[in-house]
């Protein structure tokens, strides 16, 4: 049985209302599994040393989801989790990960999730990751996710990561190595408040002919929060790479973008775009002429921007 705090957090992070009875999932809470289930095509196996999971997806598996939310609902929990995904050739699945920390105590709670993806030929995965912090304790809510992707020929990986509230500090490190024809799309949405700090770092190697990467970051930094966006794309073949960092700063928020693109091949085509600034005055004016107050206009603009 899950208590209400756990249930709420679970729903926020993964959309699940309770422990399901079917499908592939593992629900982690305070370092323990609250429920695990494999299917014919998707096998979830705890690592022998207890540090995480191996998730095996059979080739050509279609229309299945894997839910692996990680929750921390006590203060003072500090954990490092290693989950490895082995995605068989031609499989097409959605993975819903994400982490929620509810901290009412005075000790910091820290989740470090290190996810590795070995994506087979022609496989197609969508990986959704939502990070949430809540609770009114002084203990900090810290989430440091790492995502390392190896994409085989013509594999397609889409990663959607969202962190909109309550996480005091985050360092997200993502890397990808792409073979011929492989594609990766990473979309990140971050909003920081108060004294929060968020750091994002992407490191992509486009090794294969016809490989492509698209990194899109949208973020809002309010109050005294700070963000650092780093992206590094190496074009090592005929390939296409595009990174885009779009940030709105408010109050005393600070955002830095450090893009790095390196073409090691004459047919590599790489683009970086970064735009940082406060909400455009004419956007506020337009919405105010529709009858919204300045605050309402601001909320609408931010809402849309992070949608």
């Amino acid at each position: 049985m899950l208590n209400d705090i756990v249930k709420n957090l679970l729903q926020e992070v993964s959309g699940m209302m309770n422990i399901p009875t079917t499908g592939a999932f593992n629900i982690r809470n305070n370092g323990k599994s609250e429920g695990r289930h494999s299917t014919e095509n998707i096998d979830i196996v705890p690592k022998a040393d207890g540090t995480g999971l191996d998730i095996y997806v059979k080739p050509f598996t279609k229309n299945e989801d894997v839910h692996i939310p990680a929750l921390i609902t006590q203060d003072g929990v500090k954990e490092v989790v290693y989950n490895d995904f082995h995605i068989g050739e031609g499989a097409e699945i959605t993975i819903i990960a994400g982490c929620g920390i509810h901290n009412c105590g005075c000790d910091d709670s820290v989740h470090e999730g290190i996810h590795r993806f070995f994506v087979g030929k022609n496989a197609k995965i969508v990986y959704l990751e939502k990070h949430i912090g809540e609770g009114d304790g002084n203990g900090k809510r810290i989430i440091n996710p790492q995502t390392h992707i190896e994409a085989e020929e013509n594999a397609y990986v889409e990663m959607d990561t969202v962190q909109l509230k309550g996480v005091d500090s985050t360092k997200r490190i993502s890397s990808a190595v792409l073979k011929d024809g492989a594609t990766i799309v990473i979309k990140e949405k971050i909003m920081t408040h108060g004294e929060q700090y968020a750091e994002t770092s992407f490191d992509v190697n486009l090794d294969g002919t016809g490989s492509s990467a698209k990194l899109i970051s949208r973020s809002v930094a309010r109050d005294n929060s700070r963000q650092l966006f780093r992206s590094k794309i190496n074009g090592n073949a005929e390939c296409y790479g595009h990174s885009e960092c779009d940030a709105i700063i408010m109050d005393n928020g600070v955002v830095a973008a450090e893009p790095e693109i390196t073409a090691n091949h004459v047919d590599a085509s790489l683009i970086h775009e970064a735009a940082i600034g406060k909400i455009a005055g004419d956007q506020l004016t337009k919405l105010m002429t529709l009858g919204l107050t300045e605050k309402e206009a601001e909320a609408q603009i931010i809402n849309g921007f992070l949608k």
């Binding site: 004419d282 956007q283 337009k286 919405l287 529709l290 992070l306």
Partner: peptide
Amino acid sequence: VRFKGVTVKDLITLA
């Protein structure tokens, strides 16, 4: 004015 993320329907609804 252009808005990232705000849809045509959003604008008409707000209006």
